[in-house]
Simulated scan of single mutants.
Amino acid sequence: MNMWKRSELMRRLDLSLPLVQGPFGGGLSSVDLAVAVSEAGGLGSFGVHHLEAAAITAVAADIRARSARPFALNLWIPHDGSDEAHADAAQFAAYLAPLAPYFAELGLPLPTPPARYAPPYAQQIDAVLAARPAVFSFVYGIPAADVLARCRELDIFTLGAATTPAEALALVQAGVDGVVATGFEAGGHRVSFLRPAEDCLTGTLALLPQVADAVAAPVVAAGGIADGRGIAAALALGAQAVQIGTGFLACRESGTHDLHRRRLLGEDAGDTALTRAFSGRLARGLRNRFMHEIGAAATAPYPIQGWLSGRLRAAAIAQGRGDLMSLWSGQSAPLLSRGEPLAAADYIARLMSQAQQAIARLGSLAGRQEQE
């Protein structure tokens, strides 16, 4: 029997579990994972910020062909004009210089500047709206008013990420339907947009109740949650659901490489740090050689740094070089079971069982206190 009370968020999205799969970019999302989570009663997600419009259309069609359940597509909002990034020849050479030794080490020729460093955001937005997912989730800002209006017309629920109460207020005041309160424990990119990311490093335990108090819209908790105890705690602090990234990244269906997955499930999974080395934006991942060596060097801005390191990543994966690829992870990875990765359905079943046990323990404790 499903014990979960259907919150406003769950009712609006027709979810049976208060669970959102974190949307991974850079090829780490997979249709298999999104479908598995949605079919289990949560909200499966797919990060599409790295995809051209035609690929976004194809991903949405693939998910919909395999599941009639709600799902989310996620984009990065280019609030700083990053989708139009440009570097002249001298700038490109300067940005490339710190990475040249790694290209040589991997046996790669030095790249030449591309026509674009990122897909056109306007075309991506058009593709997302045309696909009409149940949820359009986004990070790094607030979509334009006309985009939000179009989402309301199409009955697309909008879900924006906030790393401070001020960002949560800005999202809701703009007309966004729900807020993901993202603590600094989370893996991947720090998605701040009102202030520098380094100034927005509040943990989930402190951030979540502040956001829940600040806005009337549904709040989803993210960051540091990988087992059922975290789910129970988040719901107690005012969240209507939780978003889990690292735990799902370690599942068999995710798009990550086995090198990455083994590190997530290894004994040193707690060794994470914040870095700009891979994308030019602050992000949390497992420490490795590239993070250490490039961390002290000047990096190109996003998305140029991401484009450059992406050329290295493909070769590093092919050559089994985990020391030269991004290994995104949150601080919750040590809470995962060591050893072989779980299927998403098994992980979800474990999460829900653990959460129910945690809630029952709290109820039992409260009952004993009343008797004393």
Rank of each mutant, 00 (worst) to 15 (best):
R287Y: 05
G175P: 05
P303S: 10
A345N: 09
Q357S: 13
V215Q: 04
P101M: 07
D271N: 15
D83P: 15
A144C: 09
D32I: 03
G255W: 00
A85Y: 10
G228M: 00
V172E: 02
D83N: 15
H292P: 05
P143R: 03
L154C: 07
A100M: 05
G224Q: 00
G160Y: 01
A355G: 13
R281P: 04
L99T: 05
T256L: 09
E267C: 04
A197V: 01
A181E: 00
G160W: 00
T57D: 15
V219P: 01
L324A: 11
S38R: 14
S309D: 10
R229V: 02
M1R: 11
H292A: 15
A355P: 07
G238I: 00
T163N: 13
Y140D: 03
A100S: 11
H79E: 11
A358P: 00
Y95A: 06
G270Q: 14
H257M: 07
I304L: 10
R11E: 14
G178S: 08
G285N: 04
D80W: 06
P303G: 07
L207A: 03
T182M: 15
G280T: 14
I304P: 11
E198N: 10
A104R: 12
Q124R: 01
V172D: 02
I156F: 09
A97V: 09
A174K: 13
Q91H: 07
V220G: 01
T112G: 13
L324N: 10
G367F: 03
A127D: 05
M3N: 11
I225H: 01
L129I: 09
A315E: 09
A168V: 01
S30T: 02
F184H: 15
I304C: 11
A221L: 01
V211H: 00
A166D: 15
K5H: 15
G295F: 00
F278T: 07
G203P: 13
